[in-house]
Every structure is written in structure tokens, then in C-alpha cells.
Lab assay of single mutants.
Amino acid sequence: NQASVVANQLIPINTALTLVMMRSEVVTPVGIPADDIPRLVSMQVNRAVPLGTTLMPDMVKGYP
């Protein structure tokens, strides 16, 4: 099973992602692959992302 990117904390709308905000976890449904975490750094979320939420491609501005 492939690990996905999961919010490690509440991420407010328009926040630029940092490594501490994300963790990898095997979840269903599958979200953004954990391998993409380095690419996500400094990209902004377009909505508030609660703790434990799987990051989906449509939540991150400019992804992929």
C-alpha cells in the first residue's frame, strides 16, 4: 500500500506547507503520494485542512 500525505496539524487556508505540517500514512482513500512531500513544501493549501486529513490534489494550489 502506498503512503499518502496527511496533515500533521490544522493547516489554515492559504498557508504555505512546511515539512512539520505533513506526515506520511497509509490511508483510504489514497491522497497525494508521500513521495511528493518535498515538492509540496512552500505550496499553499486552498482550504483549511484539519489535523489528520489526507491531502488531495485539489487542496493544494499548483499541484501537480
Rank of each mutant, 00 (worst) to 15 (best):
R47T: 14
V41Q: 07
Q44N: 10
S42G: 15
V30W: 08
S4F: 03
G52N: 13
A16I: 12
A3V: 06
P12Q: 09
L55A: 01
P64Y: 04
N8V: 12
T28F: 09
V26Y: 12
V27M: 08
S24M: 11
G52F: 07
T18K: 08
I11N: 01
I11V: 14
V49A: 04
M21Q: 04
N1S: 15
S42Y: 08
D36C: 13
V20K: 13
T28A: 11
V49T: 04
M59Q: 05
D35Y: 09
P29D: 08
V45I: 09
Q2G: 15
N46H: 13
G31A: 03
P38R: 07
T15C: 05
M43W: 07
D58Q: 10
L19K: 09
M56E: 05
R39N: 11
I32S: 01
T15F: 05
I37V: 05
L17E: 02
T15V: 12
Q9H: 12
V20S: 14
Y63W: 15
P29C: 05
V6H: 02
D36E: 13
Q2H: 14
V5H: 00
A16M: 12
V30R: 04
M59H: 06
M22S: 01
A48R: 09
A3G: 15
V45R: 00
A16N: 08
Y63G: 04
D58G: 11
G62F: 07
M59I: 04
K61A: 13
V5C: 07
R47H: 15
V6K: 03
N8M: 07
S42I: 03
P29S: 04
V27K: 06
L55P: 00
I37D: 01
P57N: 07
G31S: 02
R23E: 04
S42C: 10
P64F: 05
V5S: 03
D36P: 00
Q9T: 11
P64M: 13
M21L: 06
P29L: 06
T53Y: 11
T15D: 03
M21T: 03
P33D: 11
G31T: 02
I32L: 05
G62L: 11
A3L: 10
P38S: 10
V6W: 00
R47Y: 09
P50I: 09
A7E: 00
N8Q: 10
G62S: 09
T28Q: 14
L51S: 13
L10F: 11
A48I: 15
R23A: 08
M43L: 13
